[in-house]
């Protein structure tokens, strides 16, 4: 069995490993500004963003959190664990669901 700090340390180790690996990649000098294409694909039209709702991203993020909470609750019920922690978790997520779209 491991402690929280063991898990955190392992993740930090992985993060350091991939950060080193990433910065080992060659970073060739960027082209002059006027020679720079707006897109990697080589398209010459100006960069533009398709209008999208930020709530959609909130929804995706909260959906993933909520789904985890649901599984947490299902497993807690089936394994007969204390339901206090899942209830607190679900409550906090419900609050987040209400607050997020407003902000």
């Amino acid at each position: 069995m491991v402690t929280f700090w063991d898990i955190a340390l392992t993740f930090i180790g992985t993060l350091i490993f991939f950060t080193i690996l990433f910065f080992m990649g060659t970073r060739k000098r960027e082209k002059a500004r006027e020679a720079l294409m707006p897109f990697t694909s080589g398209e010459k039209y100006h960069p533009m963003r398709i209008p999208y709702r930020i709530k959609w991203i909130y929804y995706v993020a909260l959906f993933s959190a909520y789904e985890t909470a649901t599984i947490f609750t299902i497993l807690a019920i089936s394994a007969g664990y204390s339901l206090i922690l899942p209830i607190i978790y679900v409550f906090l997520l419900l609050v987040a669901l209400i607050i997020a779209p407003v902000e």
Partner: peptide, 24 residues
Amino acid sequence: SKEDIVPIGADELLLTIIPILLAS
């Protein structure tokens, strides 16, 4: 080893952090 291109208008910092975070 290929050229590192960040499209105009993209967030370079996030484009650096996210791949590292994803692989980790």
